[in-house]
């Protein structure tokens, strides 16, 4: 993490989303700094996905305000989409395209020139050690490789912020850690990481962590301070203390 001037890249103010009478996300207020690894935790159904959808500009809030990468989430959703990267466990790459084609497709979508795409994709393929696989279908890659490739593609256009929705679910323990090495490196290069996970050891790798319960942010601080605050030995304990009281299922 490289926070010299604490530039704010995400700022929300009482951000709220209602579906009828149901308040999925209630008056969420927080800030995320440039280059920070921000862990966005919560039980199933706590409202994480709802909040994330508003932040990436695909769902309109019911009330409240937020700026992402300096853009307003009501009026400038298209600019937001250009300034961010996104990957999830469920959707990341096109299985029936090759590795090279996936890179070309996403590079093109984000408006990079053919020349840029060509030189940067060669660089990326070499860095990942995928030279012999570059023309193979993504479907043929093991899951761990898919996720590493998906992350690389999500930051291919040098976004200000990358949103990662459970990026390491089901991945083997060594690859899971290699994935976090990549996250650290990206954060070191100034990309802000906004990540959700169900692995509580991964919460420890975040600079700061928020924990959502029933649509509300119940706690937000560094893992170290949270453990102190709740007199807990691990983030797992902190999470259990907060989420045990949850009334909502998913």
């Amino acid at each position: 993490m490289l926070i010299t001037e604490k530039e704010i890249v995400i700022k929300t103010d009482k951000l709220t989303k209602k579906f009828g009478d149901f308040v999925a996300a209630s008056e969420i207020t927080f800030e995320v700094f440039k280059g920070e690894i921000f862990g966005f935790l919560g039980a199933n159904g706590a409202g994480k996905t709802t909040a994330m959808k508003m932040l990436i500009g695909i769902s309109n809030p019911s009330s409240g305000n937020a700026q992402v990468a300096g853009y307003d989430i009501y009026k400038q959703t298209e600019q937001i989409k250009k300034s961010i990267g996104y990957m999830s466990q469920k959707f990341s790459l096109y299985e029936d395209l090759t590795i090279k084609e996936n890179i070309q497709l996403f590079g093109g979508i984000y408006g990079l020139s053919d020349k840029e795409i060509k030189s940067k994709s060669e660089e990326l393929i070499t860095k990942l050690g995928l030279n012999t696989e570059a023309d193979k279908l993504v479907a043929s890659l093991p899951l761990g490789w898919k996720q590493k490739l998906a992350f690389s593609i999500a930051i291919f256009h040098q976004p200000k912020i990358v949103f990662l929705d459970e990026p390491t679910g089901g991945v083997d323990p060594i690859t899971r850690r290699q994935f976090w090495d990549m996250i650290y490196e990206a954060s070191h290069n100034g990309i802000t990481i906004f990540v959700t996970t169900h692995y509580m050891d991964e919460a420890e790798y975040c600079d700061r962590v928020s924990i959502m319960v029933d649509g509300v942010i119940k706690a937000l601080d560094s893992p170290e301070n949270l453990k102190k605050q709740f007199n807990a030995k691990s983030m797992d304990e902190v999470f259990l203390m907060l989420a045990r009281g949850a009334k909502r299922g998913e």
């Binding site: 039980a43 459970e166 259990l240 045990r244």
Partner: peptide, 10 residues
């Protein structure tokens, strides 16, 4: 328990 949060998993 895949994709299930730590509380529900317990």
């Amino acid at each position: 328990t895949t994709g299930v949060d730590p509380v529900s998993r317990k």
